[in-house]
Design a protein around this nucleic acid. Structure first.
Lengths: 353, 353
DNA sequence: CTGAAAGCGCTAACAC
DNA sequence: GTGTTAGCGCTTTCAG
C-alpha cells in the first residue's frame, strides 16, 4: 500500500558503506571522506532516488531549519514582502512558513501556536495586532523573534524590530505638498492598521507643525476614512480649495491614493491642479497610473536583510554568506528594544506637480 | 543551554497517567476515556505549557498534515489565491507550504524536491512551467498532485486539473466588444504565462470567428506586448478607429488593462469612446479605477474548493466537514486527465460602455 | 576513516 | 480503560 520509503540504510547497503558514512556525505560534514566513498554514496543515492526525510532529520538534530512569518495579509505590499522574504531565507537553506492573520489577534495567537508546534527556529512577525505581553507568554524564551513595524516594544519579547520610517516619510510628504503650493493638507487615515497608521499621524502632525511656522496653512486635518462617507471626505478636503490654491492629500498608501484620485475625478475634480495627492509604498500602480502618483518608497530588500541578519546572528548561523553588507541603521534605544529604522524616500511624480 | 522540551512523558507523570493515555486524549482518539482523565491530562498539559512536537508526530504517524503549493508568483491574483488556499487548508487541519518559482522550470524543480523531502501529503501546482514528463519523474507515485490551469496533461501525472475557462471568457469578451460597436478587436498577449495566454488566444480567435460571420470586422490581431514598443502597440490598435468606430482591446489581465488605459489617455485617446478595453480577473483595481474596467471574474473559492476536495477524496480525509457542497464541473475527458473547468463571468463596467 | 548504538518525541499495537 | 513497547528515519558520539 504505502510506498516503502527509501532510507539511508538502503543507500548504505547499496553503496556498501555504513549508514553513518552516508549521513556524513549527505550533510557535507567536516569528517574527512574519500573521494571514492563520496562518489559511491551519491551515485547510490540518486540511483535509488533517495530523498532525505526532513521530519526525521529535524527531530534528530533538534533543529528544523524552518522559519515562521506572520503577516497581516497577502495583498499588495505584503505579497512582495513575503516573496523577498522567501527568497532570502531559501538562499540561506531555510524553509519559510507564512501565515496571514488579517490583523486579528485571536488568529495571530493560533498561528503562532501552530508555528511553535512545528518547532520553527525563528519567527518574524509583521505588524502584530496582539499585545507585547501576550506575545511574550506565547513565544517565551525558546524561539527568537524579530518584529517588523513594531514601535516601542519592550526589550525582552523580541530580538529587535525593523521599522519603516513612516513618520519621517509622512513629514517629508507634508513639506513637499506645502512647497508645491498646497494651503490645506490632509491625511486620510486607515485606523485598522493601528501601529503604522499612528506613525503616519505622528509624522503628519510634525510636518504640519513645521509648515505652519513658515507660512499660513488655511487648514489641515486627519480624516478617518473608515468612519465617513466618501462624499463627506471629499467635502472636507475641498473646504479651502480655490483657484490656484490646491489642497494636499496624504493617503494611507498608494492604493488608497489611487482610489481617491479616481473618486475625485469622477466628481470632476482635477488632480494635480485642484488636489495634489501622495501615496506611500511606491507600488507599481503608482508608477503606471495616469497621473502617476507621488509616493514614499520602501527599501524592501534592506528591511528583509536587516531582519534576517538579526535572527541569524542569534542563531549562530553564518547564513552561508548569502547576505550582503548592510549599513548600520540601529537607533539608540532608550526605550529598550533594539530598533532598526529604514528610511523612506519621496518619489515625486505627476500627482503633486 | 537548549531549553529542555516538555514532552508527553512529563505531562504523563504530572497527570499521573501513562503516556499512551496522554497521546490518546491529545489526539481525540476513539478510545473511551474518563472525563476525569481527560481533564487531568489537559490541565497538566496547559500547566506545563506542553506543546506537541509536530516533527515527531509526523515521523511516527508517517503523515505530515502538510500540503505544498507551488505558484508562479505572489502578486495580484496569486496573492489572493494563496490566501484562500491557506484558509481552506488550515480549516481542514493541514499546514500549507507555499513556494513561488517565477515560472522558472529549474526553480520549480528545486522547490518540488524540497517539498517532497518534507514529505508533504499532497501537492498543488499552479501553472507549472516544466514539462509533464519531468513532473512525473520528480513527483512519482507517492504524492498526490492537483494542477491548476494545466490543459491537456496526461492522466497519470496528476489526480486532476482545475482550470479557469479563459477560452470561453475571452470569446465572451470579444462578442461583448463587438456588440458595443467595436469594428476592430485586439488581444494584447503576454507570452510568458504560456498556458493561460494560449487559452486566451484560443478563445479570442473563436470569438473573432463568430463575430466575423455576423458582420464585417475591419481588423483584428493578437499583439505580443513583450515584443513591441508601447507606441507600436498603440499605433496598431488605432489603425481602424474613426469617429463612432471604436477599437476593442482585450488585455491579458486587469493590471494590463489598467496600464494600457492610462497609456492611451496619456496620448490623449479616450476610453471608452475611442477604445473599449476589457481585462481579466476582476481585481480590485478594475472596480476602483476610473473609468472602471470591464473584466472577467474568477470564482476563486470554487477553484480552491474543487482542488482541495479532489485531493482530500484521494487522501481519504473527510476534511472534517469543512468543505461546502459544490456543483459538478468535470468535463468528460477524452484527453485523459480529469479536468474541472471553472467558468468566468463577464462583469460589464464603464471601460466598454 | 568507518561501524555500532543510543536517542530525538511521538504513535500505535497489543498486552494487562 | 491503561500501561509497555517497538518503531518512524536520521544524527551523532564513540570505539574500532
Amino acid at each position: 500500500m504505502k510506498n516503502k520509503q527509501i532510507t539511508i540504510i538502503d543507500v548504505a547497503k547499496a553503496a556498501g558503506v555504513s549508514i553513518a558514512t552516508v549521513s556524513n556525505v549527505l550533510n557535507r560534514r567536516k569528517v574527512p571522506l574519500t573521494e571514492e566513498t563520496i562518489r559511491k554514496v551519491e551515485e547510490a543515492a540518486t540511483r535509488l532516488g533517495y530523498r532525505r526525510n526532513v521530519m526525521a532529520a529535524s527531530l534528530s538534530r533538534r533543529k528544523t531549519f524552518e522559519l515562521g512569518l506572520l503577516l497581516p495579509g497577502f495583498g499588495g505590499y505584503f505579497g512582495d514582502f513575503a516573496h523577498v522574504m522567501q527568497d532570502t531565507v531559501h538562499a540561506a537553506g531555510y524553509h519559510l512558513s507564512v501565515y496571514s492573520s488579517t490583523s486579528r489577534p485571536e488568529l495571530e495567537q493560533r498561528h503562532l501556536e501552530t508555528l511553535l508546534q512545528r518547532r520553527v527556529d525563528g519567527l518574524f512577525c509583521h505588524g502584530l495586532a496582539m499585545s507585547p505581553e501576550l506575545t511574550r507568554t506565547i513565544v517565551g524564551e525558546g524561539t527568537p523573534l524579530v518584529l517588523f513595524n513594531a514601535w516601542g516594544w519592550p526589550q525582552d519579547v523580541a530580538l529587535g524590530a525593523v521599522n519603516l520610517d513612516f513618520a519621517g516619510g509622512s513629514a517629508a510628504m507634508v513639506r513637499h505638498l506645502a512647497e508645491r503650493g498646497c494651503r490645506s493638507i490632509y491625511y486620510l487615515s486607515r485606523n485598522r492598521a493601528r501601529a503604522t497608521d499612528e506613525q503616519r499621524r505622528i509624522g503628519f502632525s510634525q510636518g504640519i507643525e513645521e509648515v505652519q511656522r513658515g507660512g499660513a496653512l488655511l487648514g489641515h486635518a486627519i480624516i478617518s476614512i473608515e468612519e465617513m462617507t466618501e462624499d463627506a471626505v471629499i467635502e472636507t478636503v475641498s473646504w479651502h480649495t480655490a483657484p490656484g490654491q490646491p489642497a494636499g492629500i496624504l493617503c494611507f498608501d498608494d492604493y488608497e491614493a489611487f482610489v481617491w484620485i479616481n473618486r475625485l475625478r469622477e466628481r470632476g475634480r482635477r488632480v494635480p491642479e485642484e488636489f495634489k495627492v501622495g501615496g506611500i509604498n511606491n507600488q507599481a500602480i503608482a508608477k503606471y497610473h495616469s497621473p502617476s502618483i507621488t509616493s514614499l518608497s520602501i527599501d524592501l530588500e534592506a528591511q528583509v536583510q536587516h531582519a534576517v541578519r538579526l535572527l541569524f546572528r542569534y542563531l549562530g548561523d553564518d547564513a552561508r554568506g548569502s547576505l550582503p553588507e548592510l549599513p548600520d541603521l540601529s537607533i539608540p534605544s532608550d526605550s529598550g528594544v533594539h530598533e532598526i529604522q529604514i528610511p523612506m524616500q519621496l518619489v515625486e511624480r505627476q500627482s503633486t506637480r
